[in-house]
Amino acid sequence: MPAPLPHEHLPSVPELVVESDDLRGGETLSDLHVFNDWGMTGQNRSPQLRWSGAPEGTRGYAVTCYDPDAPTGSGFWHWVLFDLPASVTELPQGAGNGPDFKGLPAGAIHARNDYGTREYGGAAPPPGPAHRYVFTVHALGVDKLGLDGDASPAVVGFTITANTLARGHIIALYGV
């Protein structure tokens, strides 16, 4: 039985519409979004994302990518981005990658992913069945989470959940 998805045990909230020119729900990630290390030869670029349908009172956003199927006992956080202003409803492809993070608004913060870097880190599953990569956009009732880039993904996730007004996601697949 597959591991539960991260949103399945969270409080129910309205659904955001999340779309991408790069990702399709249930389809395989392209090499563009696969890690370029750990035996992988992808381009490690964050996907383009856009969202709509945020409820009244939305003051900011967070974007995460999580692999619930990673053989760690706790999944694997590939992207943890927060403090996006409410005026931002789209991220261009590559906005989550350094060194200059073109396309990110001023003040946006990357927390460490499970690779230990503060940026998007692409798919890199071990051989076996395809893993699910859950790209989630969270509409928040606060403009700032009050955290910095040193916060762990679990602490950021806890704080996001405490402030979420709505969320939506795209689940893509990747396996080797």
Rank of each mutant, 00 (worst) to 15 (best):
H110F: 06
A162W: 00
D100M: 07
A123E: 13
H131T: 04
N97R: 13
V155R: 14
Y115P: 01
A154D: 15
T159K: 03
P125A: 08
V155Y: 02
L145P: 05
V142W: 02
A123Y: 13
G103N: 13
A123G: 15
H138V: 05
G107A: 03
T136E: 15
A130K: 13
P129T: 14
G149I: 00
G122Y: 03
P127E: 15
H131G: 05
T161I: 09
D114E: 06
Y115W: 09
P126R: 14
G149M: 04
H138A: 06
P99W: 04
N163Q: 15
F135Y: 15
V134Y: 11
G146I: 00
P153A: 03
A111V: 02
V142E: 07
H138L: 02
P99S: 07
Y133T: 09
Y120L: 02
P129M: 05
P105W: 11
A154I: 08
H110Y: 03
A111M: 01
Y133L: 11
P126S: 09
I160Q: 12
G141F: 06
A108D: 09
G98C: 00
D150M: 04
A130F: 03
G122N: 10
P153L: 00
G157N: 09
A151N: 09
V142L: 10
E119M: 06
A111S: 14
F158R: 14
A123H: 14
A139Q: 06
H138I: 06
N113W: 01
E119A: 15
A106L: 11
K144M: 08
P105A: 11
E119D: 11
T117Q: 08
D143A: 08
A95I: 01
K144L: 04
D114S: 10
A124V: 00
A123P: 13
P105D: 13
Q93H: 05
A130V: 00
G122D: 06
A108T: 08
Q93K: 15
P127A: 14
R132E: 07
V156Y: 07
A162Y: 00
P125K: 10
P153W: 05
G121A: 15
Y115L: 13
T117D: 09
S152H: 02
F135E: 13
G149S: 10
L140H: 06
L147H: 03
T159V: 00
P99E: 12
G103I: 07
Y115F: 14
V156R: 11
T159M: 02
N97T: 15
D114Q: 11
P105F: 09
P105V: 10
P92C: 11
G107Y: 00
D148R: 01
P92E: 12
V137R: 12
S152I: 01
T164H: 05
Y133R: 12
R132H: 10
V142C: 12
V137K: 14
G107M: 00
T164G: 12
G128L: 03
D143M: 01
H131N: 08
V155L: 11
L104R: 06
H131A: 08
D143C: 01
A139K: 09
V134W: 10
T136G: 07
F135T: 15
G122P: 05
V156N: 07
Y133E: 14
G116E: 08
H110D: 12
Y115Q: 15
A124C: 10
Y120F: 15
H138M: 04
I160K: 08
